[in-house]
Structure formats: structure tokens, C-alpha cells
Design a protein around this nucleic acid. Structure first.
Ligand SMILES: Nc1ncnc2c1ncn2[C@@H]1O[C@H](COP(=O)(O)OP(=O)(O)OP(=O)(O)O)[C@@H](O)[C@H]1O
Length: 695
DNA sequence: CCCGATTCGATTTTT
DNA sequence: TCGAATCGGG
């Protein structure tokens, strides 16, 4: 097994550990993810388990895809090396990595639920997945029908609901009775419309397993081996789910299962940054209590960063007393000093970053790669034009009409250098100032996050038609689609329709409604014989959407081109049979994460610290290192947890391979008014000798 | 019921 | 500062 030589001794111990629980608890960049990947390849190539008997949970879809590729490559190499006995090529042994079940908790749960949800009525397998916007609409609908003895903001109510679910709070323990009622009505509404929100995807899967031991037992047999990456960021529901899957019942032996739990978990308690949505790093610290037979491996050698960066990061993480101590070291002694800069405000901050990027990108030494004269249309052909188009008019980005033309610069930039650069910030709103400066300077960049592509109105419109075709109970999608284009059905009329009281409608509204539902019914009838492209086409034709969106304005043309792009995306599912094609499209869209696009695009990357989890870049800029921003104001309030902010800074710093820039500003405009801000405690934690002050 | 004008409130992080 | 929510006239 040649590939084992890519591992150090400790990694090898983890990868070749005997069956049973294994925990790899180790610091940043120490090769945890590599160990997990090789463990999968090891299990398959030693024929301990077939590929399709393995479940691997990753934090993003992209991580899953990458891991699949790597496992596949390892196995291919392994099989070539063993040509003499190639009669058992992996075809007889399950296809290599493609049949490993890999994905995020959410996507794995969806796949389970599509098959099994009819066991927990009233849901059925055509259920709609509600994104946060849909949930918000549902909450609003509920609050409208509520006696308003006081004002409750829908957003607040939604966050309470999500927090009850994520923290597994018993309803009896919720003190404020109003929220219990809101919660119950919300849940009832979702059941009525056959919809699950993000939290429900996990919650209902747990419920399914708890209420149906035979189904649980089936999945235990399906996946006798389970691996979890980023274990420190599992929340209590995810923990429960894993625990259910790997626990061995009395009948285990009969079904050929090992008598001990086969779980391989890797993570770093110091990198737990999703506490706000219920993640509990105690899960990883308590692993040995949970699984007393566990093999525990620590990895101490860091392969990513320089010693300077590690030293600084180690000092920073000490600010959080809750973390387990680790002794990270690297052979990469010394390295460049960490560069610290203080700017006057956010624009100056952006300019400093831009100037440094230009310096780096102009260094073409030791590079044989092609360089490019910078032109406005310089951006490479993207693999995801659809998503790119939607980058405009984002919540936090610069809207189309406010965009200045990129100034063509005379100097040449090395594209491959730009790709190795990332700028990290605490809040999405910070991206705007950076973008403005980058455009001025003509620095190619791309922004990760801040927009989910289906947030565009025209896309959400069409998706609501599609959801409605699949799931006729989805009255939330109905409420949206029913007035696309406007057909004179307002709140009052819609309420009657929703209550199945269409008889009471005014003549005008009744005609509209009958016309609408006839069209929808006719599409539904033929849908099974059509490809997904044809279905969308039919919707557009029947409801005159082209005329509606293309109103002659340039915005209209934008809208229409977005619709065209939706066709492109849908095309990927055109060959799937009904209704899987449509389900798969809607699912991909609902569970799509902006982080999944990282690396596909050219230019320097801009993203939040959270999105940087698990990634690495040669050069990392961290901006906004001020008290109030990192750590964020909200974390300084009483009862809040500042340690997570420290861990966030630790995650950011340890993304850097060679160069780390830390930048703070004296002041910053927030909501239009200026504030002056003190340097972050994170800066103060770093010993002077590791820093170089640059102006 | 529709649409324009004005007021309001939001920024922590995300599947 | 800017987009969403709300209000009132058509
Ligand atoms: N044994 C090894 N020899 C050389 N390089 C290695 C080895 N193990 C891992 N690496 C490299 O070190 C880097 C970090 O590895 P990996 O992403 O697996 O670490 P990690 O512990 O998961 O990091 P993090 O917790 O920060 O996400 C990668 O570039 C990887 O290729």
C-alpha cells in the first residue's frame, strides 16, 4: 500500500488503527483531513469495507467532492500497483469513491428522508426544503394571524425557533409562552405544507431513527463505518444522529456488524466557530468518555504554515482558556514576519491591502506561468456563469449601477499569484469597502458568499412554480407564484384560497384563480413525460413570464438572462427521470453553499472568516482587527461568548502558508456615522518580535 | 388591488 | 447608508 508513505507516523497510526472508535484531535494544518481521506482509501483497499458501506460527513459539499476525488486517485494508484491481481479491480468491489456516501449532514439527511419520510407522517417524499427566506415568510404568516399583544419581529421569532431546535431545548423549558405558541404554529404550518426547514432536515432524521428502530437498524447495516470531519463543529442533533448510527445493538453480531462503534472523528476544539448555531466543541472533548475504547491520536507537526505564524496563532489561542493545549511545530522554521498595519479608516485599509496585493502579483520571479495584461474583461471563463451573474445586486456587494469601470492598469499581474491570496473579515458588510478599492485599482477578485443565487426574485419565482408542481400542498410557494405576473389576487383573496374557501371569492378573483390553477394542473399532468427543461419552458410560456420579466429596461434584460441561466443549471438534470430530476435540482439549489464555489474562480478571494474553515492560502490578509469587530461587539455583551471570537481569529491566522497580514483601522463608518475603534486584543496578544509594522 | 413615496431599522457568523 | 416595510392615493 504505497500511499501510506505520504503519512507521518502519527497519521499512520490513525489511518491503520484497528476497527472501533478513533479520534484524531489535533491543531490546525496538522493533516487531519488527509488522515481521514487516507483512512477511507485504506479501509477500501484492505477490503475491510466496501466503498458503499462507508459514510463520510464533511463540512461543505465542496470538501466532499474533493475528498471523493482524492480517495479515487489513491485507489486507482493502489490498483495499478497491484496489477498482478487486478482480477479484483474495484469494479467487483464496489466502484471506488463514487459510491462512498459523502456529504454534509444536511445532504445526507435529505437523502435518507427522501426514501423514508413517509414513515413519519404527515410528510411525504416530495417535501419542500425551506431556506431561511422561506422560513421567514412562514413566521410572518403566523405572526399576522397572532393576537398582537406585543410586537415581535419575524426575524427574532425565527432565530428563537431555530435556536430551540438546534440547542434541543424542550418546549416545557421555554419560559416565554408566546414563543412556544409561535413555535408550535410554525411547525404545524410546515407540516401542513409538507416542508422542512434546514434544522428539520436533521431533527426529523433523528426522530425517524428514534421512532423506527428497524429503519435505524437498516442504516446501521448500510453504513457500518462512519467518518466525521470537523467534529468540533457538530451540534447536539448531529451528535445524536452519529451516536444513533454507530451504536451497536444486541442484534449487531447477527447482522455481521462489529460489536464496537466504528466511528472515525477528526477535529480541533480550538477551531470550533459555529457555536452560534448550536455547535458544541465539548462533543470532541468528551469523545473518550462517549467511546471509552477509543484510539486517540494527536498530530503535532504542522505542514501548512511557518513557525512565525504558528507562534503567533498559539499566543492568540491562549486568550481562550477553554482550549486543550497542543504543541504544534513545523520544520518550516522562521519565515516572514507577520505584517501589521494600522489604517485610518476602511478605505485606507482597502488601499493598503490593494497595494500589497499588487506588489505580490507583480512578482513574477520563478514563475513560468503566463502573465496577463490586465483588461476589464480579464476574468476567465467561469465554470459557474449562473452564479457569477447573480453576484451583482447582492445584499452586501456593490450593485451593478454603482460599479465603476475597472481601470485597466499598465503593469502585468501574475494570475496564479492572485489566486493564492485571500482577504478575510468578520462581517459580510466589510466586503464593500474592499470591493470598491479593488475595482479602482483594477485588481481581479471574487467575493464568496453574501448571496445565495436563488435569492434573486425571478429565480425564486420560477422555483416556487417548480416546487408547487412537485408539492401541491406548498401554499407558501403558492402565495408567491399566484401573482406572477400580477393577476389581482391580494392578501384577502389569497387567505380565502388558502382556507379552501375559494367559493367566497369575488368574480374577478375567482376567474383569476381558476385560470391559474387550470394552467398549473395542466403542467402537472404532463410533467412526468417532460424533461426538466421542458417543464420550466412550459411554465414560462403558460404564464407569459418572458414578457413579464423583459419589460424593455436593462434590468429586465438582466432578469431574463438570469432565467436563461436557470435553464443551464437545470440542463444538468435533464436526463434524470421524473420526479428525481426536479427533486435533485431543487435540492442542489436549497443546499447550495457559496463556499462550494471557492477555488473555481480567478482573482484574489474575499470571504468571511467562517467561510475560510478548512482552506489554506499562501497569503492571508485579516482586516478589521478592532475591539468591537473582532471580537465583535455582540460577543462582548454580557452572557455572550468571547472565546469563539478568539477561535475565529485562530482559524483565520492558521489559513496562511507563508504570509500573514493583520490590519486594523483607527476608525470606521458603520451605518453612515463614524466610530473610532481600539486595536483588537488579538493584536496585543502577539509578541512584538513576530511582527513587522508596515505603513 | 396596485404602485409610488416615505419611514424605519439593520450588521455577526450559516446550512 | 441603503433596502425593506408601510401607508395612502389612484
Ligand atoms: N504527512 C504529510 N506530509 C506532508 N504534507 C502533509 C502531510 N499531511 C498533511 N499535509 C499537508 O498539510 C496541509 C494541511 O493538511 P490538512 O488540511 O489535512 O490539515 P488539517 O489538520 O485538516 O487542517 P485544518 O484543521 O487547519 O483544516 C495540506 O496542504 C496537506 O496536503
Amino acid at each position: 500500500m504505497d500511499f501510506l508513505k505520504d503519512l507521518n507516523e502519527q497519521q499512520l497510526k490513525a489511518v491503520t488503527a484497528p476497527l472501533g472508535p478513533v479520534l484524531v484531535l489535533a491543531g490546525a494544518g496538522s493533516g487531519k483531513t488527509r488522515a481521514l481521506t487516507y483512512r477511507i482509501a485504506y479501509l477500501i483497499s484492505t477490503k475491510t469495507y466496501k466503498a458503499n458501506e462507508i459514510l463520510a460527513v464533511t463540512f461543505t459539499n465542496k470538501a466532499a467532492t474533493e475528498m471523493k476525488d482524492r480517495v479515487e486517485n489513491l485507489l486507482r494508484k493502489f490498483n495499478n500497483d497491484n496489477d498482478d491481481n487486478s482480477n479484483h479491480s474495484y469494479n467487483n468491489f464496489g466502484r471506488p469513491s463514487t459510491s462512498v456516501m459523502m456529504g454534509t449532514f444536511h445532504s445526507v439527511c435529505v437523502r435518507i428522508l427522501r426514501r423514508e419520510i413517509n414513515k413519519i407522517p404527515p410528510y411525504n417524499s416530495n417535501f419542500t426544503i425551506f431556506d431561511s427566506d422561506d422560513s421567514l415568510r412562514a413566521v410572518k404568516q403566523i405572526l399576522e394571524n397572532f393576537d398582537i399583544e406585543r410586537e415581535i419581529s419575524p426575524n427574532y421569532a425565527r432565530s428563537i425557533i431555530s435556536s430551540i431546535k438546534n440547542h434541543q431545548v424542550a418546549l416545557e423549558a421555554v419560559e416565554d409562552q408566546t414563543f412556544v405558541e409561535i413555535y408550535q404554529s410554525y411547525q404545524k404550518l410546515l407540516e401542513e405544507v409538507n416542508a422542512l426547514d434546514f434544522d428539520d432536515l436533521l431533527l426529523q432524521t433523528v426522530r425517524l431513527f428514534q421512532e423506527h428502530p428497524r429503519i435505524l437498524s437498516k442504516y446501521r447495516t448500510t453504513w457500518p463505518y462512519v467518518l466525521v470531519d470537523e467534529y468540533q463543529d457538530t451540534n447536539n442533533i448531529q451528535y445524536k444522529l452519529i451516536k444513533l448510527l454507530v451504536t451497536r445493538g444486541q442484534t449487531s453480531a447477527e447482522r455481521g456488524l462489529t460489536s464496537i462503534s466504528n466511528i472515525f472523528a477528526v477535529g480541533d476544539d480550538a477551531q470550533s466557530i459555529y457555536g452560534f448555531r448550536g455547535a458544541n466543541y465539548k462533543n470532541i472533548l468528551d469523545f473518550e468518555k462517549d467511546f471509552p475504547e477509543a484510539t486517540v491520536v494527536t498530530l503535532d507537526e504542522n505542514y501548512r504554515s511557518t513557525q512565525n505564524i504558528l507562534n503567533a496563532a498559539n499566543e492568540v489561542i491562549k486568550l481562550s482558556r477553554e482550549q486543550k493545549e497542543k504543541n504544534l511545530w513545523t520544520k518550516n522554521t522562521g519565515g516572514a514576519k507577520i505584517i501589521h498595519h494600522t489604517a485610518v479608516d476602511e478605505t485606507a485599509e482597502g488601499m493598503f491591502v490593494a497595494m500589497e496585493i499588487l506588489k505580490i502579483a507583480s512578482e513574477k520571479a520563478n514563475s513560468d506561468e503566463p502573465t496577463y495584461e490586465l483588461e476589464p474583461d480579464f476574468f476567465e471563463e467561469s465554470e459557474t456563469p449562473f452564479f457569477d451573474n447573480l453576484i451583482r445586486n447582492t445584499k452586501y456587494g456593490i450593485p451593478n449601477d454603482k460599479r465603476i469601470k475597472t481601470a485597466p492598469l499598465s503593469h502585468e499581474l501574475d494570475l496564479s499569484n492572485l489566486k493564492k491570496i485571500v482577504v478575510l473579515y468578520r462581517t459580510n458588510a466589510q466586503s464593500r469597502a474592499l470591493e470598491e478599492v479593488f475595482l479602482q485599482f483594477g485588481i481581479p477578485y471574487h467575493l464568496v458568499g453574501a448571496v445565495r443565487f436563488y435569492e434573486r426574485k425571478e429565480i425564486k419565482d420560477i422555483l416556487s412554480f417548480l416546487r408547487l408542481i412537485l408539492n401541491e400542498k406548498d401554499t407558501l410557494s403558492l402565495s408567491r407564484a399566484i401573482n406572477i405576473p400580477p393577476r389581482g389576487i391580494g392578501d384577502k383573496s389569497f387567505e380565502l384560497i388558502r382556507m379552501n374557501d375559494a367559493g367566497k371569492l369575488s368574480t374577478r378573483a375567482r376567474n383569476s384563480w381558476e385560470n391559474f390553477s387550470n394552467k398549473l394542473a395542466s403542467i402537472r399532468k404532463t410533467a412526468a413525460d417532460l424533461s426538466i427543461i421542458d417543464i420550466i419552458n412550459l411554465i414560462v410560456k403558460k404564464f407569459d413570464l418572458e414578457d413579464y420579466y423583459r419589460d424593455g429596461t436593462s434590468e429586465g434584460e438582466d432578469r431574463w438572462s438570469n432565467v436563461r441561466e436557470l435553464f443551464t443549471v437545470a440542463g444538468r438534470f435533464a436526463n434524470n427521470p421524473w420526479p428525481e430530476g426536479l427533486t435533485a435540482l431543487l435540492e442542489e439549489i436549497a443546499l447550495y453553499s457559496e463556499a462550494d464555489e471557492v477555488g473555481n474562480k480567478s482573482g484574489a478571494t474575499l470571504m468571511t472568516l467562517h467561510q475560510a474553515k478548512g482552506l489554506e492560502y499562501e497569503t492571508v490578509f485579516m482586516v478589521g482587527l478592532e475591539e468591537g469587530l473582532l471580537p465583535h461587539m455582540k460577543s462582548l455583551e454580557p452572557g455572550a461568548d468571547i472565546n469563539e471570537e478568539i477561535r475565529l481569529a485562530y482559524v483565520g491566522m492558521t489559513r496562511a502558508r507563508k504570509n500573514l497580514y493583520l490590519i486594523n483601522a483607527y476608525g470606521r463608518r458603520i451605518f453612515g456615522s463614524s466610530y473610532s475603534l481600539k486595536p483588537s486584543r488579538i493584536l496585543r496578544a502577539i509578541p512584538e518580535e513576530l511582527l513587522e509594522r508596515r505603513n
